[in-house]
Amino acid sequence: MSAPVLSVRNLSIDYVGEDSDFHAVKDVSFDIAKGEFFGLAGESGCGKSTIAFAIARLHQPSALIRRGEILVEGRNVLDLDKKALEKFRWTEVAMVFQSAMNSLNPVLTIEAQFHDVLKTHLGLSREQSRKRAEELLALVDIPAERLKSFPHQCSGGMRQRIVIAICLALNPKLLIMDEPTTALDVVVQREILQRIDVLRKELGFSILFITHDLGLMAQVCDRIGVMLEGELVEVGDARQIHTAPTHPYTKKLWASMPRLRGAQIGGEASL
């Protein structure tokens, strides 16, 4: 097995309060291999989004990284200075955010939102950016005319596919998806995840997929980590987490899933 794309080592993150701290992430370690689809599951507030934001150093005060390392391709993200950090973002780690409706800048055209990435990182001209943007949109089945549109003129599912296309603009090594489909209906959600999976196999990037929906995760991921109150309590193969969870909390999570849903997933897993 080659060196992991992402390696989180003994990461602890606190939210600093006026007189005491809230320990959001407690001594978490995990690796994501090249091309791997890795899922991080847990209830809201368990620290999984905090980890996602910390990987691209997007966490805001009062979040504070107390200990640990975040290695992307062997380089500690926490050591990057401001310039190096700007360069690192999006070229190595791109991110899809929770709210599909709200992650595109409402006052810029889709084209401008491709162009600012391509210009900043690759120095492309407007003309070159447009060509590249058209190719990228084609990957997610969106017609090139959409480049002229503003976000509000596109549906929620379309917007999230556009975000994914922007994510792929620089061929990142890791794609982080923080609850990327919660705002979308089930059909669109499924379409998008399938498309991502196909692109992953084509382009070879790894994925860190974050959701509270363990069932959905079991369908798409290679490996799954389960978080409880800031701790990573179990990491394993998707199949093992599904069929033979070892930690009591993972068992409880499965037990809390609606029956009907559980049966469905079982059926699909065998497909």
Binding site: L58, R89, Q98, N102, S103, D116, I166
Partner: peptide, 28 residues
């Protein structure tokens, strides 16, 4: 807002995010 965090995540310069993502929308 997510689009501002995304602007930062895109590795854009601080000025670009400050003016074209945050201020431009706050102007409305």
């Amino acid at each position: 807002e997510d689009y501002i965090v995304m602007g930062r995540a895109k590795g854009l310069s601080e000025n670009r995010v400050m003016f074209w993502y945050a201020a431009r929308n706050a102007l409305l």
